[in-house]
Computed example of a mutant assay.
Amino acid sequence: MPVLGQNQYGKAETRVVRVARAGERHELTDLTVSVALSGDMTDAHLVGSNAAVLPTDTVKNTVYVLARERGIDSPESFAAELARHFVDAQPTVRGAVVDVAEHRWERLGDHSFARAGQDTRTARVTFDGRALQVLSGLTGLTVLNTTDSEFHGFVRDAYTTLAETTDRVLATEVTARWRHTAEEPAAVAAADWNADHAAARERLLAAFAGTYSYSLQQTLFAMGSAVIEQLPGVAEIRLSLPNKHHFLVDLSPFGVANETGDGAVYHAADRPFGLIEATVLREGAEQRIPVELTRL
């Protein structure tokens, strides 16, 4: 006999742009918000009763109203505000997961902006009626080292053709999620999420640039360790690093040498690619970031 398992519903990818016009210098906040609600929804699935269902259109409207009335200090604080609202306001809603992606803009003047960079700031807040779990993160952060990277001494079998190298281009597109130790609503509300995110991003970049790499795995651990060591409020960080391969172009058919060194020419291959993923934990911390989160 079929039975209902875990289920949730909500509104995905609500785009909300907020413009604060206090004075001549305007502030622009641009987010994509996704909300998933869970709770006493059995009858909606089994008998088609909507008595416990808050319409997803209402979820969308709530995002807009809270953005207008309460403002958006940071993706984390706004996600926490939404998660607590849905659980506290609706007796049939027992849990809420709110994902927020921030689209950054570079200021050109008091009221002029250009889209900034390629990386996207992310946040996920889960609320179960008691504690908040806050995950900060970023995705699409493309970085590259033109040297200080080696790869050799690996396992070989009958199908191995990859040549060993002591000097290669190392490039990746960073996706990272890190979990904060602050879970009490008051602590979450008081945290400076913008400063924490900027510090974590800076540590990730500094560790990538400053690590002499013998493998992308080693670089990943150095990046995660830098965040754990410098941000005492972070319990764990999960990183997903695709290896953006750069291969020397074979120019020998044209009688041209193309070796690693000054003026070398590479082909940047987008696929297939190696994918390195791991979690770095603070000693004694529990691993709680689901593996699939870094692939979103």
Rank of each mutant, 00 (worst) to 15 (best):
V134F: 13
M41C: 05
S136V: 01
E236P: 05
T181G: 15
R203I: 00
A195H: 10
R156V: 05
Q6N: 13
D119P: 00
A182S: 06
L296N: 11
S38T: 15
T32S: 02
S215T: 10
A163K: 10
V47S: 14
A89M: 08
L170G: 04
R282Q: 01
R282M: 02
A186H: 09
T139R: 13
P232T: 11
D270P: 03
T56E: 10
L108W: 05
Y214E: 10
T294K: 01
A200G: 12
I276H: 11
E184Y: 00
G261Q: 12
L31W: 01
L231F: 10
R201F: 10
S225L: 09
V35D: 04
V47F: 11
A67H: 08
N7K: 00
M41H: 13
G137W: 07
F78N: 10
I72L: 05
A44Y: 06
F86V: 13
K60G: 15
E150R: 15
D148M: 14
W193A: 14
A269Q: 15
V291W: 11
T62W: 09
L141M: 09
V227E: 10
V234C: 13
V249T: 11
Q118G: 09
R68H: 15
L251G: 07
T92K: 01
T58E: 07
W193N: 06
S149V: 02
T181V: 14
W193R: 04
F78V: 08
L281F: 07
S225G: 14
A163T: 07
G129A: 07
F113E: 04
E283P: 03
V280C: 02
S34Y: 03
V280R: 01
A101K: 12
V125E: 12
I72M: 13
V98T: 06
L231Q: 14
L66P: 05
D270W: 03
G39F: 00
L28P: 09
D88L: 09
G261E: 13
R203S: 07
S225P: 00
E286K: 12
S240T: 04
D119C: 04
T181S: 13
Y9V: 12
A67W: 09
S34H: 04
R121P: 01
R84K: 09
F208A: 07
R68L: 14
L132R: 04
V98P: 03
F113I: 01
T181I: 08
I276D: 10
T126F: 09
H45G: 05
T294M: 00
D157L: 08
G137I: 02
A191M: 04
A51F: 02
S38G: 15
T58M: 06
A285Y: 11
R203E: 13
A44I: 01
G274Q: 03
T29M: 05
G274V: 01
K244T: 03
A176H: 00
F86S: 10
N7W: 03
A89P: 04
L275Q: 15
